[in-house]
Structures are given as structure tokens and as C-alpha cells.
């Protein structure tokens, strides 16, 4: 069945007809033609398809397009300024070698954006938790974490300090 939906896509209001069985990932890549968002596993394991819906990072491969109705969607294309100036998180990935093959990068950067929007002073532990659902098969995790740390207020204020682990951070081991 098809239906009409209205949503905000990277700051622009959109109205369009969609099919009920479309995933948000299908809508973004195949219908809107924005291919920055990647399909990796298609089952919510790898995070390559991560986008932000109403401020929350979600896997667009497991999110129905119908559910975006009335919501705000941000993809990797929505980060840079219209004049092409990169977002500070994107710049940090370039400067810190956070990108190797680049396939996981849009998902990693979007997860980082969702984290820092909610918690601008995220520490290393919080950064690792935020990207736990994003796999990088080049295994460039150290540089990726460094990239995100470099734009977190926590790093700017307290360089080289390992954050005190409160009860929330306690793994119980």
C-alpha cells in the first residue's frame, strides 16, 4: 500500500508518496538519491546506515519509511554547510585519519553527531558506547575515537585525563 508522508529532510520540508514496505534506507538512497548513507548488513548489526531521527541515532535499514511521517531526518549530507564547508566532526575525521576506506564513515560521523548534540562533553567511554553499533572493518577505531574526542568539549577542557567512572560506567566486573 502507498501513503503520503510529510517530514523534514536535512532541514527541508518534504511531502511524498511512499510504499509501506520501504525502509527508511530505501527511501533515502533509492528514492531521494542520497547515497551517503550506506547499506552494510541490512540487519542492524553494522551501523553503516545510521541516520538521525528527531535527535536519535537509528539504523535506517530497520526503520520503516512510514515511521518518518511528521519527524525530522538528518543524513550525512545534512552536516556540511550549503557552501561545502565541512562540519567540525567531518573535519576532525579528515585531520585525525579517522577515514580509511570510508564505508563506515557516514554512520560513524552521524553516531558522533547524535552523541555530541546530546552530550557535547562526551568522554572516551561515552564515545565508545555511542559508536559500539558502528563497525569499521579497516579497524581504524583508535583514530575514529581520537577524531570524535578532538571535537568533544570534554577533551578540550581536560586533555589526557581518564574520566572517573561513575556507577553508570561500571561494568560490574
Amino acid at each position: 500500500m502507498s501513503r503520503e508522508i510529510a517530514f523534514v529532510f536535512n532541514g527541508n520540508k518534504m511531502n511524498m508518496a511512499i510504499e509501506d514496505h520501504w525502509t527508511l534506507l530505501h527511501l533515502i538512497r533509492e528514492e531521494l538519491g542520497y547515497t551517503g548513507t550506506k547499506e552494510g548488513c541490512g540487519s542492524g548489526e553494522c551501523g553503516a546506515c545510521t541516520v538521525i531521527v528527531d535527535g536519535n541515532a537509528v539504523n535506517s535499514c530497520l526503520y520503516l519509511a512510514a515511521e518518518i511521517d511528521g519527524k525530522e531526518l538528518m543524513t550525512i549530507e545534512g552536516l556540511a554547510s550549503p557552501d561545502g564547508t565541512l562540519h567540525p566532526i567531518q573535519k576532525a575525521f579528515v585531520e585525525n585519519g579517522g577515514i580509511q576506506c570510508g564505508f563506515c564513515s557516514p554512520g560513524m560521523i552521524i553516531s558522533a553527531k547524535a552523541l555530541l548534540d546530546e552530550n557535547p562533553n562526551a568522554n572516551e567511554e561515552e564515545i565508545k558506547e555511542a559508536i559500539a553499533g558502528n563497525l569499521c572493518r579497516c579497524t581504524g577505531y583508535v583514530q575514529i575515537v581520537d577524531s570524535i574526542k578532538s571535537v568533544s568539549g570534554h577533551e578540550a577542557q581536560e586533555p589526557h585525563v581518564v574520566a572517573f567512572r561513575s556507577e553508570e560506567g561500571d561494568r560490574g566486573d
Binding site: 542492524g44 541515532a57 539504523n59 559500539a132 553499533g133 556507577e167
Partner: peptide
């Protein structure tokens, strides 16, 4: 939950990923 039911917090914080837990 964090203050009074930490057992529940301990369990949900390690389910899936942030992306999965958001949905």
C-alpha cells in the same frame, strides 16, 4: 531507573547498540 532500579539499568544499557536501543 538509575536511582532505584539499577539492576534494570545494568541490563538495558548493554543491549544491542544506541541505534537499536533508540527504537
Amino acid at each position: 531507573v538509575q536511582a532505584h532500579y539499577p539492576i534494570l539499568y545494568d541490563a538495558v544499557k548493554n543491549i544491542g547498540s544506541v541505534q537499536i536501543r533508540n527504537v
